[in-house]
Amino acid sequence: MRRGKLLDIQVDLRSNYVKLKIGANIDVKPGQFVMLKGDWEEPILPRPFSIYDRDNISFTVLMKIRGKATRKLSKLKIGGEIRFKGPLGNPYPEFSDRMTYLIGGGSGYAPLHFYAEHCPRKENIIFFIGVDKKDTREFFDEVKGCRYEWAVEDGSSDYKTVVDLIEDYSFPPDAVLIGCGPKVVLQTMLRIAEMNSLEAYVSLEEMMVCGVGMCKGCAVKVKEGDRISIKHVCKDGPLFSVKEVLLEW
């Protein structure tokens, strides 16, 4: 695994989100991810995280504090060592001339943020993002030039959930939808896309160990015509077309 120093850490204990800025120049494209852990024995597995942002000397990941690994990562000190492998996975395709709706919730915002940052035509990007509270919304940086619709569970905006937001919205026929977030959001997106024949993609997450397609841990069921086959989030994804992906086994 490669090593990098923690250049900056922002922890928001009200929202339980963390941004880690790691000093390493990696050629990572929007949609790709890294697997990282601190310089410790336990938890033993590096965790996959989408890239939130990058520049020539560093990359940043955004995570919610959920379990042991993210809690330990949130307590790292600046200058602390991070081990990582990546970039892994495939970049998201570009649709700069079409209206692109980036739909997500929670830490699913990370790859969408990076994608929009790199999109040459920001005016074509509309975000539909769901978060649990106002504090989270404030912790998530907006990409300048893009439009944002927020759904906040604490009732501080018009919509409480991103599911309600997208159910109420009429997407234009040539829209492209890219989703990353809780399964319920992706399932709703999938249904809306099917009903309206929209081009849509979902970015998936699964437990994984190798990150390159060897261990077969992050299996996804897909349909290719009448045939059902198995793909893997790390190697074939993380983005899958709603035309092929089966979210249930």
Binding site: L45, M207, C215, S229, I230, W249
Partner: peptide, 23 residues
């Protein structure tokens, strides 16, 4: 073989527990 439905992996102390199912 398609292997087993997910989740196929869960972390344990000092390793993992897998249920890949010979995909």
């Amino acid at each position: 073989r398609q292997g087993n439905p997910p989740p196929r992996l869960v972390e344990i102390y000092g390793g993992i527990l897998n249920s890949i199912g010979l995909e």
